[in-house]
Write a protein that binds this DNA or RNA. Sequence first.
DNA 1: CAAGATTGAGTCATCAATCTTA
DNA 2: TAAGATTGATGACTCAATCTTG
Lengths: 155, 155
Amino acid sequence: MTDAGDEDRVAAWRAVLLAQSRALRAIERDMEAAGVVSLGWYDVLLELNAAPDRRLRMQDLAARAVLSRTRISRIVTELEAAGYVVRRPDPDDRRAALATITPAGRAALKRAAPTYLAAIEEHFTRHLARGAGRAIAEGLQPVIDAHRELLDPRR
Amino acid sequence: MTDAGDEDRVAAWRAVLLAQSRALRAIERDMEAAGVVSLGWYDVLLELNAAPDRRLRMQDLAARAVLSRTRISRIVTELEAAGYVVRRPDPDDRRAALATITPAGRAALKRAAPTYLAAIEEHFTRHLARGAGRAIAEGLQPVIDAHRELLDPRR
DNA sequence: CAAGATTGAGTCATCAATCTTA
DNA sequence: TAAGATTGATGACTCAATCTTG
């Protein structure tokens, strides 16, 4: 059953799984406690804010964020109700919907940013040894890229 | 709003988040397609199998696996119905429940192991550069340990 | 009254089906 | 007929309340 050699080969995977699930819970708790937008909302607002013209098609949003296509749809509906985003059909391809962040959305993002950054520092970054952050980010990038191509070959 | 310095400090976190969510989905799909136990079940069976006497209290199971205390309770109930685990009160402390893996459970674990290992290789490990696996595992360990202590100071 | 565990009720996320436009 | 997106139904997960034993 999973001998020592196997264990070695899955160690990095299990470390990612454990570190992520532990830190994520803690970060979400902090954001909830601070009364700022949830992590899901934050991620969507962050990507929209960074996008050209501050807007993105649903699909591109899903590819960038850590969320499924359907989940994006639901979250954008919530964000729209909160006034943080507007959704309009893409004039170039009327099947597509463009989500655009509003000034209120940018304000909410700005309010949440300090909590978000502090929580990541407290529950994740703070524990990393010198250089480990870069090694992790660069080490994992090929994994992320490989799956991005699978999802969306044109990128 | 999140300037370049901030981005650097959260890069490792976002990489972990993205790599985990992408790879996890793919691994779960493979296990589902192969008709073997789910990742949740696998994790519990794996920990039980590795434990002294092949058994663990619910709480210790939750601390080791990537699952909450309540979720463990639910999964153990399912595993028990499948005949993969038995649950008995701990004779030393009758408040506690001990979950023990059965021979059928070990067989299920053994059947799932090749798919599990192959999926991790295919969707995660394969993409890592030489040495990156170890750097990631060792780099993240302090994060995991920090949260373990928070959950359970005696360990 | 605290610790270990389970359960009822509610929330969140996903799949498959659907709607609309290309 | 396919691509983009949304939604209805369902299953997974979590919180708080509860039960039992220390």
